Computed example of a mutant assay.
Amino acid sequence: MSVLLVIPARYASKRYPGKPLALLTGAGGESRTLLERSWQAARSVDKIDRIVVATDDARIEVAAQEFGAEVVMTSPDCANGTERCAEAHAALGGGFDVVVNLQGDAPLTPPWFVEALVEGLLRDPTAGLATPVLRCDGATLSALKEDRRAGRVGGTTAVFGAERQALYFSKEVIPFTEQAFAADEPTPVFHHVGVYAYRAEALAQYPDWAQGPLETREGLEQLRFLENGHRILCVEVEARGRRFWELNNPEDVPRIEAMMREMDMA
């Protein structure tokens, strides 16, 4: 099974313009861009045949080439990372069985999260794509709820059925729970990790579908697959002592840098 990994990156983020070029300082005091740290995370994944950065912005193209990444230029009309991945795969001539979307705002993504997705698609031929979910402990659940109370769009949560098929994804904290949990206590809430592994044929269909009301309301690209009847496999992953958070807002920079120091990430 041949695997292409794409890091979609755009400069014109509504919530955080220029986000891919934001600097993150690691435990050793060295500052690198969010984009470079995401590329480093991609390079640590096993059994990936090719890695490319997909962008529509010359500033990101130059920055990526400076640290040695291969770049595919895509249209500014791409509505989200999935459309950009589809366009990048087509621009490369296709031919890959699986396309991984490692979004450029997730530099803390452990390699085994991505590897588990490819393995999940191998085991489940009915799924058009796979995405990881991570059971929240009490501390993570509290952070998600605090973001919502503060009016920030933070992490996404997921609910799924008995066979791990996705039922829904939301930027609200679902399922609802008022129970109090200790910081290290498991909770019934699953944090959706914004990484996807698509079968090439499912990805190719995506740009032809119109945005549905759920995708439009939530601003979550994966809901377009659910709205068009495609099965999404939720693969539960384990942190193995690693902390995870995505960079969604400027306020997330110090949070991620603290996690990097905690995990002694240079």
Rank of each mutant, 00 (worst) to 15 (best):
V98C: 04
V99A: 05
V99D: 09
V100N: 03
N101S: 15
N101H: 14
N101R: 06
L102G: 11
Q103N: 10
G104V: 07
D105T: 13
P107E: 10
L108Y: 00
L108H: 01
L108P: 06
L108Q: 02
L108S: 06
T109K: 01
T109Q: 04
P111C: 06
V114F: 09
A116P: 10
L117V: 08
L117Q: 05
V118A: 05
V118G: 01
E119L: 12
G120W: 03
L121A: 03
L121C: 01
L122M: 07
R123P: 03
R123W: 00
D124F: 00
T126V: 03
T126I: 01
T126P: 00
T126D: 09
A127Q: 06
A127H: 04
G128A: 03
L129S: 04
L129C: 10
L129G: 04
L129D: 05
A130N: 01
P132I: 08
P132N: 03
P132L: 07
V133Q: 00
R135C: 00
D137M: 00
D137F: 00
D137G: 07
A139P: 10
T140H: 05
T140R: 06
L141K: 05
L141T: 07
S142Y: 14
A143G: 01
A143N: 10
A143T: 04
A143F: 05
L144P: 05
K145R: 14
E146N: 15
D147A: 10
R148S: 11
R148C: 00
R149P: 11
G151S: 13
G151M: 14
G151E: 07
R152Y: 10
V153N: 07
V153M: 14
G155F: 06
G155N: 15
G155I: 09
G155E: 15
T156Y: 11
G161W: 00
A162H: 11
A162Q: 12
E163I: 03
E163M: 07
R164K: 14
R164Q: 14
R164T: 04
R164L: 11
Q165L: 01
Q165C: 06
A166I: 01
A166L: 13
L167H: 01
Y168F: 09
F169M: 09
S170G: 15
S170A: 15
K171Y: 12
E172T: 15
E172D: 15
V173A: 10
V173W: 10
P175D: 05
P175T: 02
P175S: 09
E178A: 10
E178L: 12
E178R: 12
E178V: 11
Q179C: 12
A180Q: 08
A180V: 11
A180R: 13
A180N: 02
F181K: 01
F181R: 01
A183T: 07
D184M: 01
E185M: 02
E185D: 00
P188E: 05
V189Q: 07
F190G: 00
H192F: 14
G194C: 12
Y196C: 06
A197D: 05
A197W: 05
Y198F: 15
R199T: 07
R199S: 11
R199P: 03
A200K: 14
E201V: 13
A204E: 08
Y206Q: 08
P207V: 09
P207R: 08
W209F: 14
W209K: 12
Q211P: 11
Q211R: 12
G212N: 12
G212Y: 02
L214S: 13
E215P: 11
T216I: 07
